[in-house]
Design a protein around this nucleic acid. Sequence first.
DNA 1: CGCATGTTTCGACACGCGTCGAAGCATTGG
DNA 2: CCAATGCTTCGACGCGTGTCGAAACATGCG
Lengths: 233, 233
Amino acid sequence: MTTQPNIAAVAFLIADPARVAMLSALLDGRARPAGELAYSAGVTAQTASSHLGKLLAGGLLAVETEGRHRYYRLAGPHVALVLETLASIGPAESVRRKPLTRDAQKLRFARCCYDHLAGRVGIAVTHGLLEKGFLIAAERKRFELTAAGAEWFDRMGMSTASIKPTRYGLARQCLDWTERQHHLAGPLGVHLTNLLFAEGCIRRSPSSRAVDVTPKGWKVLREHLGIHEQALL
Amino acid sequence: MTTQPNIAAVAFLIADPARVAMLSALLDGRARPAGELAYSAGVTAQTASSHLGKLLAGGLLAVETEGRHRYYRLAGPHVALVLETLASIGPAESVRRKPLTRDAQKLRFARCCYDHLAGRVGIAVTHGLLEKGFLIAAERKRFELTAAGAEWFDRMGMSTASIKPTRYGLARQCLDWTERQHHLAGPLGVHLTNLLFAEGCIRRSPSSRAVDVTPKGWKVLREHLGIHEQALL
DNA sequence: CGCATGTTTCGACACGCGTCGAAGCATTGG
DNA sequence: CCAATGCTTCGACGCGTGTCGAAACATGCG
């Protein structure tokens, strides 16, 4: 009686395999045109249009029209969080002796979670920052940047002073469902990820949300944060 | 393609108003008989039985047979977490100038979240414990109990040494969707809540998940944690 | 044993929604 | 201006599923 029907309505939007496929394709936070999403979901353009319209009306997606293309993206990080939380329910930590495809392994190892780095590598980076005392866990699911941390980021070429925090703070803790640990999100996490891309430390996989760490990337991670590739395999 | 259809399947189970009503009725972590859940959802016993069967098969519920009653409860805290996360999507912080019923207000003020204390009071208690230095926020969405904290709990009549942590630790951080802040969960949170019940500091509302703080309760909260009733209204 | 209560199963109905074919708009390019 | 491309709207089909009535099953009480 005192329950909001919102829950059912939101769940209903996610309750369709085609829609989940499209939402999953947008999990890295980037925007994609309708046609590509239709292909990702394995449905025709008409069907996809219908789905996208509903997700848009439901507030799960945002859209940007550019020429004759319409680019859809997740309405925000909360949507990504809901999807990751739902994914954590499944077969309840089933005994996954199952092979686990090569793609899935790469995804677990390193990927983009909305707009920041996740997977084992994302967690390792976050752990490294915590151990070096550059970051400390704070209340409200946030991280606090220490003086030493600000100095380190500056040395890496990121002027942390110019990054403005959102309403939710400068650095947030984001839960990773494959590893069940927190990793760095929020503006600070986004900027760090962008920096790693710009420096050629990591590269996007062409077809998926997976991310590859380059040899230079491993060198940087080892020298600055004490992360060894072998320790993550 | 590399997406698990689990997400859609789980979402589908939650995508029905009647099922959401039943799940919500179980959010306090207690078990309830099928008939009561049918009444809560406003459907007949047959319909409810069908829903409960599906939720059971989907791993969202657990059941315990006792005499001619069958008591259903949430399969675990993860289910409660999913529901709270989904609830946080809704109309995206709509301008709620809307009245907000008396029941809803009480629910926001203090309630049971699965098996521990939530709402403004739950958050205030957690904040108090943090400010006194009895608890500190730790990685992996946990709280760490300090020496001073252990002493305080002992003084309150809870031998913390006898509480055994689960796989996820002794004290966890649980996100509150009404206030968007963390509060104390996990074994430590459960024991504390039970203690407050046993000492007559808080009482369950007869019909809902809401909780009432007794005059004695306010006295205890004020003297031990510096929480004033007026500050929470 | 017979009756009442709580719960599940069976069957039938109807509504909703995902799907795609065909047509309609919008934009770009010759 | 016409053709091509990208996307959306319209219409129709079919399956799935939520709903309830009736009946079966299970348990507890005289």
